[in-house]
Design a protein around this nucleic acid. Structure first.
Lengths: 337, 337
DNA sequence: GGTAATTTCGAGAACGTTTCCGCTATTTTA
DNA sequence: TAAAATAGCGGAAACGTTCTCGAAATTACC
């Protein structure tokens, strides 16, 4: 029924052996140029497509890499995947996609059932409360390289690529300060993630440097959605000592915050400054436009994939940590005038 | 080196044959409950993971489906993938991702080099000027089912799922008319795509129904980006007879249009009404908020995947065309007051 | 208590490829 | 011109499963 042209068909047609066909199709050594050309010709004529299950079985390596991440429905992750995909495509790798919905259980289930025998490597950004680190280590011990990006598991020794969360936050908050804001709140991401810790640290250090108060009331941890931004800001507005600026862990939250501020008639910039992180396209669309720290999502995707491919090709490639600088993009939401 | 636990290891450990282990691991028939339990126990103990290359080879079916689409960095497609992924995950299928960047050449290259021998089916949304339809048919003839979504290849006989582009456009334009707009322009997508034709038809028919003029000057075909929306609107504003409303093929273009209108000091709604299509989250963020026709992206993804799975399981599943209704979401951009 | 039916299992081929080994011719070397 | 090297190819095992067939052991039947 579903019969595909195989190497055997070519061999039979040409009256030569399968081993010769196999060699002709890949290597250039040990096979006469003439027979080689005849094979290629016949392969084209019969429209031969290699069976990757078979090659995978025989060679012990498919050309698949898995990408595991929390979401794809946002600017950052979809752009990272685009970068990954670009490099993978160039190098003849295909990508297998797993999305965890940011659920630790789902993540665990995925990683437990991973077809590691047909995967050459993993690219992963962990879930918010991931408890799969043991399983990732197991995968690594099985000889499958893993590269983390953005949301990294920091006690696992392997390559990681991320943006400079600390300095990005630091610069951003300094920008707020230099624009005259003094009571700066931070609506942060889940405390478990390394990068929220780094952004928080950057925020705190910037405040300290300029002798501004750090208040626990002004630091709220929650999720990354627009809704989270809204509820966080509601909470902030209830503080006896109301902040005059908000640094959000990402643009989505910042936009949520702006939307409720606007709905309450609070002037963004003038009364309360807002700073985001990511440079989501929406940050330019909203009015007033949102000042933010741009993350090089595409580069992060590309670099992650490049590193993974190095791990795959070189047996003992030394793990690298790559940190891309962010870029402060100043817009209207942090201007008092 | 990279040695994985196999079925043979389990067999040797338990002093039984591989065939018994194989049966025990899958079927429930033809194997004693006790031995079955022993096998499962040992498999768990040794941390056995099935080799999908081997099963794929032996059974002639991997559990992979390919998803081929133009982009993933937008709301619509990333949401569709999320829906696909949801169903695939539930059903034990994994998804292999290919993105064409909306390039016909890239698409062709991808489809030509598809590992069809390790793919159970395809989910595809074609590139703007796709010339790969012959290759898609070839894939289908090879016994690999294909389901198209959104951007369908309409002369290929297989299942398709899309939104109701015609009626969505029709309703949307009628809404504009009922709000008092009389000179309605349409900034459309690439003419080659079926759905831009349908939206265009809906637009024209709504105008005809209400005896409003249809002017070729008011219909502009270009791409789907925000930039396209901007340049389209520049062109419209140059018309001797300036339109008083713009129906954009999607929200991105609509937002591009709004941005330039705003920059020119033209009051959106009051002077020129704007209508989008998609219900991208940005449509709610922009000010004034954008009236649009919501597409059920998640449902489209789910349904596509369900249909594909039916095609895969049932030998001769009759192709279905599923059309989801859109939903007009009325916001500020189409109000004159 | 003998036959028939059923349950449980093993042997071995098959899936499509790669790769090691060895066999001929042919060419090179001394 | 004989010996050695090499180029080109085929045979066959191997990768990890599934699956068909049939054998052995157990149970059911009268």
């Amino acid at each position: 029924m579903k019969h595909f042209i195989t190497i055997k068909d070519i061999a039979r047609e040409l009256n030569i052996s399968v081993s010769t066909v196999s060699r002709a199709l890949r290597d250039t050594y040990d096979v006469n140029v003439e027979t080689r050309e005849k094979v290629l010709e016949m392969a084209a004529k019969l429209n031969y497509k290699p069976n990757f299950n078979a090659t995978g079985l025989a060679k012990g390596s498919s050309h698949n890499i898995a990408v595991i991440l929390p979401f794809i429905t946002n600017y950052y992750f979809s752009t990272v995947i685009t970068g990954i995909q670009e490099i993978a495509y160039q190098s003849g790798y295909t990508i297998v996609l797993y999305v965890t919905n940011d659920s630790p259980e789902r993540e665990l289930d995925i990683i437990k059932n991973l077809p590691i025998t047909s995967l050459d490597g993993l690219l992963v950004s962990i879930a918010s409360n991931s408890d799969a680190s043991g399983h990732f280590e197991e995968v690594i011990n099985n000889g499958i390289p893993v590269v983390f990006f953005d949301r990294v598991a920091n006690h696992i020794e392997t390559s990681k690529v991320m943006q400079d969360d600390y300095n990005g936050a630091f610069e951003g908050v300094e920008h707020l300060i230099s624009n005259g804001y003094k009571k700066i709140a931070h609506i942060a991401g889940p405390a478990s993630l390394t990068f929220t810790q780094n952004r928080l640290k950057g925020y705190q250090d910037a405040l300290s440097k300029h002798n501004l108060p750090i208040s626990e009331d002004w630091i709220i941890h929650s999720g990354f959605s627009q809704e989270d931004g809204k509820s966080d800001v509601e909470q902030l507005l209830k503080c006896k000592n109301r902040p005059d600026a908000i640094f959000a862990a990402n643009d989505r939250k910042a936009i949520g915050a702006m939307l409720t501020l606007k709905s309450k008639g609070i002037k963004i910039g003038k009364e309360i400054g807002v700073l985001g992180f990511t440079n989501d396209p929406s940050s330019e669309i909203i009015s007033p436009s949102l000042t933010t720290i741009a993350e090089p999502a595409l580069e992060i995707g590309k670099k992650s994939c490049e590193l993974l491919l190095k791990h795959i090709s070189k047996k003992h490639f030394h793990p690298e940590e790559v940190i891309f600088p962010g870029k402060l993009i100043i817009r209207e939401s942090t201007s008092k005038v």
